[in-house]
Design a protein around this nucleic acid. Sequence first.
DNA 1: TTGTAGGCGTTATCAT
DNA 2: ATGATAACGCCTACAA
Lengths: 324, 324
Amino acid sequence: MAVTIKDIAERVGVSVTTISRVLNNRGYLSDKLKKKVQGAMEELNYQPNELARSLSRKKSNVIGLIVPDISHPFFGQLTKHIEYYAYKHGYKLMLCNSLLNKKKEKEYIELLRASQVDGIIMGSHTMKVEDYMAIKLPLVTLDRRISDAIPYVSSDNYKGGALATKLLIRKRCRKIAYLSGSLQLNLLAKQRHDAFMEQVGRQSVDYVVRQTDLNGFKYKEYEALVRELFDEHPDIDGVFASSDLLALQVVRESRRRGKSIPGDLKVIGYDGIQNGGAEELTTIEQPIQEMGKLAVLRLLQQMAGEETPLETILPVRLLERGTT
Amino acid sequence: MAVTIKDIAERVGVSVTTISRVLNNRGYLSDKLKKKVQGAMEELNYQPNELARSLSRKKSNVIGLIVPDISHPFFGQLTKHIEYYAYKHGYKLMLCNSLLNKKKEKEYIELLRASQVDGIIMGSHTMKVEDYMAIKLPLVTLDRRISDAIPYVSSDNYKGGALATKLLIRKRCRKIAYLSGSLQLNLLAKQRHDAFMEQVGRQSVDYVVRQTDLNGFKYKEYEALVRELFDEHPDIDGVFASSDLLALQVVRESRRRGKSIPGDLKVIGYDGIQNGGAEELTTIEQPIQEMGKLAVLRLLQQMAGEETPLETILPVRLLERGTT
DNA sequence: TTGTAGGCGTTATCAT
DNA sequence: ATGATAACGCCTACAA
């Protein structure tokens, strides 16, 4: 059996209250006693039981994070930063991978609530709006506006879409494709598409739009999607892919067909992911670190009962590299 | 205040014991009562408090996972599968990102123990052997043998190293470089290097070895490393990189220098990461999914008090693709 | 089949 | 300054 404050108390010859006090640095304590207690703790190798503390305090210092797929570079990087800031503020992270599975996402939310997490960051959105509103826990949403009661953090999708499209047009593309993958079922990423439509409309450039369906993460399907696009529209000379992974697929397929990039075809991606072969892709970079930081911050604010802005939209940046 | 079993008990007019019983499906209960209790739970929207349960049962159903960097594709994918199997068996995941920071890793271990996790999967190894042996909690290590008391899961690094080197030699490379990055401070990945040395020695092929230092994750340093290699050894015609990320860097640098791959230079990576730009890389594929599955399995076995093999080594596979 | 009461390890409210 | 004691929400002998 592990050693508890009771053991320490007996050892030192005081009450558990006192031990608890030095543990939390609360109340008035003589330095002598403090030292003695700390000494005993070391000797007995005492470790506080966070479960008991959490139960008593009604605060677990745990944040739940729900993402669609932790192996997706965007979410991997986001998670890294979320963990960083959570840790910095004394919070642990419970990681939930929904795989865009509605049932699993719902189960996880109940699990998190049952586990008494202090708040949830949602990066996966497969449920109904009411379901989210029923969570009644400090909550921050990523890239999705659910209601005007749930704060969200996002980057400027409309701006990003406009920047990307404008670049392709400026580079004299005559027929541009907009490609979006299964991650894009959320509302806000749709603004990239809106911006695209507005730009091609305004400049009356020829265009095509292709979207994969939303069920799950079959990255393999990207391949078919891109192949199909090229088969049906061999005359495309510009592609705006709404994720870097998709853009990479476009680059690969072009290579296979002997199309040179950026000569015959210009490609721009989205996200600005690192560590994975997208380093030479022209892309719209999302400020992933800032997004993670602010997601945590907004959550902390809520947990502290402070006012939180509904909307936090961070700037994107065009990274012009080798594919345009 | 949230509703507790006590509320349910009062509502139904029975004791809390009974409620607890139906909650855990333990003991003898009349169906009538069961239904009534479940009804009341629904009505009051009762949710069990896992903290209280865990405290009482002395079992949290939480697994701690420590990785060096969740944004690294290898660990992202591994984590995805670990989460999958943990969830399947009723365990939640507490994610810890050590960033290969010794202090943070140690703090996290104490945090996990304080949080009463039922076991730990360690993918980060910066501490001393004694520190790990002192954990005294069900523990599984990834890619590292710490002592003969701590089970570990790995893939066949020696075989992988041999396969890779042999391939380059078979493809008639005359001067081969072995590159390894900061992730490789662990013992087992070193076997790739051992195998490399053995192979080049046996065939008396010319070779070079380059390793980055171990502090942290400066992926940017990969670039310098590779550039340096090429500057000093322009006559290299084969590279065995001990991670796909490194191999990608080699590919990029070669492109920059106008070296054609696989014509002038053959490159083979390691890991078999997906969802990025490594799809056309020749590589040694680690069975990431199986590794995740077995890590969880070995941990479950320990938690159940069963015998666990010290060593679990999974087979690797050569994926010959475009860069050799 | 159901209830009573003590315990899980800590914190918090009163006292003293 | 320090101590008793009742929570926190649930589980589990032991009784009945």
